[in-house]
């Protein structure tokens, strides 16, 4: 037990470069595996939350753009969504990395873009914006006509109508699908260090450490279930969190219509 506390102190923050420099190389204890894989989860959470928050804003803009009547706004939004939804995220990571690499040669300003914390985040941001944009677009199209007419009758128009009627209704309708997207985005963050982005000084994410242990011990039956444990835990947290927001979004509805967020995970990617 004492050893385990020592291990947590050494490796608990290893994935962000704090603590023991050298990774354990032999005689791995269960504690070491739990600690290091858990430490790697920080990267997954960082990528997941940052991409989700920034992507949310762009997604709203894309959804509005895609349903615009002006074709010079609609077409770019449509193409953006098609580009990122129609190609594998894995290839997007590779392409972006090599793109940043060649940009770096022309301008040292792009130095940071070749490291995972920024470069991969940008790809995830654009990717989740495209997926959520499509979800929001679908929700925009299914806003009840009566709601919009009621807003007109109250004399709301333009920005006020969007801000007070259309946007909240869109979110309410899109929320179950958006929860799904958040879960899959979070899972997709494991791809970062398996595409071209290097894990600098072996500071990687949870899957990076799990596969490190699996490669060293040639025994996949311990590290991957640990990884699964962490991910299921965090998935449950996302479901709970989004469920709370869902309740808030639907708080004005009569009690009978209030639907609990029924989670039916559909593979959207």
């Amino acid at each position: 037990m004492k050893n385990c506390i020592q291990t947590i102190q050494d490796y608990g923050l290893r994935s962000i470069g704090i603590g023991e420099r050298r990774l354990p190389t032999s005689d791995f204890t269960l504690c070491e595996q739990f600690t290091l894989i858990g430490s790697g989860m920080m990267w997954n959470i960082y990528f997941g939350i940052m991409a989700l928050v920034t992507g949310f804003l762009l997604a709203t803009a894309l959804a509005v753009g895609k349903s615009s009547k002006n074709r010079y706004i609609r077409k770019p939004a449509q193409w953006f969504i098609f580009l990122f939804r129609g190609s594998p995220l894995f290839i997007q990571f590779f392409f972006a990395y090599f793109l940043f690499l060649s940009l770096k040669k022309t301008n040292p300003m792009f130095d940071a873009f070749t490291s995972a914390w920024l470069g991969a985040l940008i790809v995830l941001f654009l990717n989740t914006a495209a997926y959520s944009g499509e979800i929001f677009y679908g929700a925009l199209r299914s806003i009840p006509k009566g709601d919009v007419e009621a807003a007109d009758a109250y004399g709301l128009s333009g920005w006020a109508r969007f801000r007070r009627v259309i946007w909240p209704t869109m979110l309410r309708l899109a929320w179950p699908a958006y929860t799904n997207e958040a879960i899959f985005l979070f899972q997709a963050t494991t791809l970062v260090f398996f595409s071209a982005f290097p894990a600098w000084r072996q500071e990687g994410d949870a899957l990076y450490y799990a596969s490190y242990f699996a490669d060293k011990t040639f025994n996949p039956f311990i590290p991957y279930p640990i990884l699964a444990f962490y991910f299921i835990l965090f998935t449950l947290f996302i479901v709970w969190m989004f469920g709370r927001i869902n309740t808030r979004l639907n708080r004005h509805l009569p009690q009978a219509q209030k639907k609990k967020l029924r989670l039916r995970l559909n593979l959207a990617r």
């Binding site: 879960i183 699996a214 996949p220």
Partner: peptide
């Protein structure tokens, strides 16, 4: 297969099946 990233399964099964 839902709650866990699919690449984790890919990496896991390839070794697990072989063994």
């Amino acid at each position: 297969v839902r709650g866990v990233p699919d690449i984790a399964f890919f990496l896991f099964f390839v070794i697990a099946l072989d063994q």
